[in-house]
């Protein structure tokens, strides 16, 4: 499983995403740039330039026509994937930490940070026909979620709910129509760092600084599976096909480390059997913490983005596809 190294970012990676076909990979970084890559060979398709701050988050719609990015420059931008043109730039009072297209591609959700007297907001924008018509600069909905700061969020199945993950380790179901918090469950001891939906969005995986990742049922917010590691986790992803695995990764910043001798092996992507909650393997390579993990929609490859500024794309060997967990 020789990795392809994507070298095009000068600072640490913050999020990576495959498109629905899996032929493209989008990456964002603290270096202000959004990159698009061909996932099979690591060649760069193009860049989306315009942000003047760290880009925290990116998402692409299901037809790979529109891209949305959110940044520390207090803007979220909508891009034409094919030509790199910026179609819209929404401005906010604070940084945009998370963006995501709804399941029907008609809306995006975004999260703005609380800072300097501005409360955190969860906002929904219409981007329907965004490729051919100008999109509105005004949100459809602005939600001021009560309670601890929201760090991550995603649309649930059929866009019925938005799942938000908070700094105190809780997850909440939010009704996108009313902005009401329908239910909440404190599933982690420390802040949530990532939240990725399963293909049909009926369940999701969370990662936390509390060194664990969990599988949670969307509708009930009930924890179904737990994966406990020995390092703070920054990302977790569900393998959609081929194997019933999840992949988690993280690691501590060098400055937070007191004993260097135990550093070896902390910067690995760890594969766990999703259902049996047993670790099945590790993939090393990064020189620093792993910040973001994405898995090819066909389960053929996975990619990790690190604090070291690299994206590593790993295509699985044949034996991965024939591997059978011995019961």
């Amino acid at each position: 499983m020789r990795p392809i190294l994507l070298q095009g970012h000068e600072r640490s990676l913050t999020q990576i995403k495959y498109n629905r076909e899996g032929d493209l990979l989008f990456s964002v970084s603290k270096d202000h740039v959004v990159n698009a890559w061909f996932s099979h060979n690591g060649e760069r398709l193009g860049t989306y330039e315009g942000h003047i701050g760290a880009v925290w988050t990116v998402d692409v719609n299901s037809t790979t026509t529109l891209l949305v990015s959110g940044s520390a420059d207090n803007t979220a931008k909508l891009w034409d994937v094919s030509n790199g043109k910026c179609l819209m730039s929404w401005e906010f009072n604070t940084a945009v930490r998370r963006v995501q297209f709804s399941e029907d591609d008609k809306k995006i959700l975004l999260i703005t940070e609380p800072r300097m007297g501005f409360p955190a907001t969860l906002q929904i924008f219409s981007i329907e026909n965004g490729l051919t018509e100008p999109v509105s600069s005004e949100p459809l909905e602005v939600i001021h979620p009560q309670g601890p700061k929201i760090t991550v969020a995603a649309w649930g199945a059929l866009d019925k709910y938005i799942v938000a993950g908070r700094e105190n380790g809780s997850v909440a179901l939010i009704d996108p129509q009313t902005g009401e918090c329908v239910s909440t469950n404190k599933i982690h001891d420390l802040t949530l760092t990532d939240l990725q939906m399963s293909t049909d969005r009926t369940y999701f995986i969370t990662s936390s600084k509390d060194k664990s990742a969990k599988i949670v049922e969307t509708e009930s917010l009930e924890v179904l599976k737990t994966y406990v590691t020995d390092t703070p986790l920054n990302s977790a992803a569900i393998m959609p096909k081929v194997q019933e695995f999840v992949v988690v990764g993280g690691g501590q910043e060098a400055m937070d480390v007191t004993r260097t001798s135990s550093r070896q092996g902390k910067f690995e992507c760890r594969f766990w059997h999703k259902i049996l909650e047993e670790e099945v393997g590790r993939v090393r390579g990064h020189f620093g913490p792993i910040n973001t993990i994405a898995i090819h929609p066909d389960g053929r490859s996975f990619a990790s983005g690190g604090e070291d500024g690299y994206v590593r794309v790993h295509h699985f060997d044949d034996d991965f596809f024939t591997f059978k967990f011995q019961i």
Binding site: M1, F271, E279, G281, F320, F325, Q326, I327
Partner: peptide
């Protein structure tokens, strides 16, 4: 992906997994 399940697992463990 070098760590596969051991064949030494007990039958109780196999039942649990199933």
């Amino acid at each position: 992906m070098d760590r596969s399940a051991s064949s030494q697992v007990s039958s109780a463990e196999r039942t649990r997994r199933r």
